[in-house]
Design a binder for these strands. Structure first.
Lengths: 135, 135
DNA sequence: CAGTATCCGTCCGGATACTG
DNA sequence: CAGTATCCGGACGGATACTG
């Protein structure tokens, strides 16, 4: 029989519960663009245009939205230099650097296990197909 | 000036590129339910119904879909016991246990930093409001 | 018990146009 | 340069009904 592990080990928060605030934090973090933006900012400060070019495939809207969410959550700093043309620099806060270690680990894991995943998927799809046509 | 770090350090994969296969893997992993399902399975094998009850708020459809995706990617085992009523047990594969360490870290981080995030968000929202009404 | 099938509203995310 | 505003299709995800 399954028993729930000790949830109070770190403050009583439990992301498995739908109304726990940690579920919302998890929602924020488990996002492709969030992972990549934070990963891009780990080496250092970047401007908006630099981020847009680095995050291949992201639209202006999604980059703006992601950066706002991260700024609001206190993971990213936004520094505006009111020059003409305007210059905006983004960087990680200490909290952002903290979670950045985890975001990087996820991204690197994905990069390192492409073949494992692809092989498994091909095998799975082949089995599904052969079940439909047993010769 | 920003320079791209050495991408070839682990096989040439780069999730920042839109067509890199690792981007698809990242897409699979950066998902709330994926994180929670893998986290729930780390302590050991669980049945479908047990998972549904543990992952508060998940629907049958999303649980099935998530489990299929993970099974197809080779992260989860599905063991069917053709009894009546049927019994299906889910567990992590070695690959699943491997990424499970990272998924758990993300979830625990979320649980541990609720207050930091909430404080930052309240502060951000307060500033946005005062800018609209400078008295 | 562990699904599959279907319907349907929401909102994610892309494309485009415009601005300080 | 770094946004904002708007439109829109399609996927995501929930609710419900049915099944081996």
């Amino acid at each position: 029989m399954y028993t729930v592990p000790d949830l109070r080990a770190h403050g009583g928060a439990d992301a498995f519960l739908r109304n726990c605030a940690s579920r919302a934090v998890l929602d924020l973090l488990t996002n492709k663009w969030v992972c990549l933006v934070i990963g891009a900012l780990r080496p250092g400060t970047m401007r908006f245009g630099e981020l847009r070019r680095r995050l291949d495939g992201i639209t202006q809207k999604m980059l703006t939205q992601t950066l706002r969410d991260l700024e609001r959550a206190g993971l990213v700093n936004r520094d505006l230099y009111p020059s003409v043309p305007p210059k905006v620099e983004y960087s990680l806060t200490p909290l952002g650097e903290n979670v950045g270690v985890l975001m990087d680990a996820i991204r690197v894991w994905a990069e390192d296990h492409i073949e494992d995943i692809r092989t498994a998927q091909v095998t799975y799809d082949a089995k599904a197909t052969e079940e439909l046509q047993p010769i």
